[in-house]
Design a protein around this nucleic acid. Structure first.
Lengths: 334, 334
DNA sequence: ATGCTTTGTCGAAGCGTTTCGATAATGGTG
DNA sequence: CACCATTATCGAAACGCTTCGACAAAGCAT
């Protein structure tokens, strides 16, 4: 293994000179710097990770706390993971995955021995235990989701309430007076994934304001639950003119198939709105208008706020991302 | 931050005594050991990661090289990731994810600075570049998949050839003389994912031996390609009596739906065989008999062989896992 | 009692960096 | 030309741990 000393010797300079040439924290004659760089290439020198960390530097590692629940939607989960990694790499950080063991234990483990400089937490629930832990450990980090309303720790999320309002606004504007909602599986709600409640209550509120009736069906996880949900909605309101999806892709697919089977024309007979879609609503069999979950942006922001704190800046304000509606022709006036 | 010195002082012993009490590499009086342990708990001492690494110990981190191709199947990918993490945790290891940048670059980065003790590589292709790199870096590790036939570097995979033979054997045994194969998307084959070729050539060979005709349809990635594949098979052999699936779940689902639409009874009219299924064939709309990809075992073995090498043992022999057939009633004699 | 092994503990070196303070060389200014 | 500021470089300490060699104390057989 080549060490900084080998480089220093070969270049005929001292160790510190090499260090400064590398970090740029003090000026080094351009000639010297160039020579050092050449030698580094030649000897294939790479600073030793452990030594760097010990000498007080950062580890350039963040943890991604990504608890995997049985009822979780794997592709969505994976998208978040990938995007966090991508974002971290932009800051020259690598990601340690905390996925299997108890969330709290994993964080404790990596934090205790200072393996990571910060922690990004996803799969956040209301009253998430990780918040207290991270506060206590004084670890930089941020949440993708909202554990609680606060100012002292960073989080980022889609503004689900705004998304819900946008939803109702558009449908009401198109003259719909009764809309169906196909929601996430029970399990999600029970686990107190706050985003569902935030979406839902804003939906109800806005609907009341506009005198619009909402009929809700929570779709389960089992095959066929999407189909069942639509049938249930139609049995209550046979001439239902609009459906909002706030659920995972498989359910949407099933509903769309059922729509086809029933020969309901979209959007003339029935309008479909994908709300906070964690999938690509454009590549569905019937492309859907609506609001996508800005996964990439969420992850970017989460990593960025984490980096801020790691680099000694004050934590950024919590971020609620503005929902962006995209029209794909699945909405029609009543 | 509490250091080993704080512990030593509090316990009235030397630093080395604390270290030995912790590592158990030399005998320490039980009384002393207990006192040290109590103090460690009391002071909440955690050995500093960087210091440990520098002092020559392991990092207790492995990298998971998991390149994500656009045509990859996210849920399958995620299952492998999760299982590798789980397996690593059993050995008290954490996992650094290498997912976004160029595979080779990522490995170089973490290896160069000795961030990780080993590398597990998934998404392996024939002639995978990572093999040469890992050999050259002399990094412990193993492949999930087969980059090339070899003895000097560990890999683990399902015995796809045996799986293919088992497939044909059973179908031939049931009297089928023509079977359809719905295969992975083109992209996979083009990327030289060896397992497809291994499966395929064994399939062809065994079929020839048993005088069985195979008609192949590679299913694309776009929606509807499963349906198209089945239709194409049926247009060639209208009374097709058996289909083998060697593709991802969405394609299987589509074929099953098409089977329903066409009112083909399973298994009386048509037998369906899930080969090397990366999904759960039991929870499909029509549960399928067949051979599952033993993801958990593959990951366990991969991590274990990596650990062997990390711990100084000679690398284990490559492992080909024996396919295990499970009957779920989707096969019938012709 | 004598010598020998085993057990428990200590001190110090070493791991490869970063960084601080010191110093030498250089250049510009009055 | 003397003085000061700047620039370029060096040496050494510090980071927190592991591990080696040394050694005192205790236990045992002779």
């Amino acid at each position: 293994m080549t060490t900084i000393k080998d480089v220093a010797d070969a270049a005929g300079v001292s160790i510190s000179t090499v260090s400064y040439a590398l970090s740029g924290k003090r000026s080094i004659a351009e000639k010297t710097r160039q020579r050092i760089m050449d030698i580094i290439t030649e000897l294939d020198y790479n600073p030793h990770f452990g030594a760097k960390v010990l000498a007080g530097d950062k580890t350039h590692l963040i943890a991604l706390s990504a608890p995997l629940h049985e009822d979780g939607h794997l592709p969505t989960h994976m998208r978040f993971v990938t995007e966090v990694i991508r974002a971290a790499r932009k800051h020259d950080y690598d990601v340690v995955m905390l996925a299997t063991d108890d969330e709290v234990k994993g964080i404790k483990r990596v934090a205790a021995s200072s393996i990571v400089d910060g922690v990004v937490s996803m799969g956040v629930t209301t009253g998430d235990e990780r918040l207290a832990l991270l506060r206590q450990l004084k670890l930089p980090g941020s949440f993708i989701g909202i554990p609680e309303e606060m100012k002292d720790y960073a989080y980022v999320d889609l503004d689900f309430a705004a998304a819900a309002r946008d939803c109702i606004e558009r449908l009401a504007g198109l003259g719909h007076d009764t809309v169906g909602l196909v929601g996430h599986p029970y399990g999600y709600v029970n686990r107190h994934s706050g985003f569902i409640e935030r979406f839902d209550s804003a939906l109800q509120e806005e609907a009341k304001k506009r005198d619009l009736r909402i009929i809700t069906q929570w779709a389960g996880l089992e095959r066929g639950s999407g189909r069942k949900a639509l049938d249930a909605l139609l049995s209550q309101v046979p001439d239902l003119s609009a459906v909002i999806f706030h659920c995972n892709e498989p359910v949407v697919e099933e509903v769309e198939r059922r729509v086809r089977e029933l020969d309901l024309r979209v959007p003339e007979q029935i309008s479909l709105f994908a709300a906070a879609a964690s999938y690509d609503p454009a590549s569905l069999e019937i492309p859907l208008s609506g609001i996508s979950l800005p996964i990439e942006e969420m992850c970017t922001v989460a990593v960025e706020t984490t980096m801020r704190v790691i680099n000694g800046l004050p934590p950024a304000e919590p971020v609620l991302l503005r929902p962006e509606f995209i029209d794909r022709g699945s909405l029609h006036k009543r």
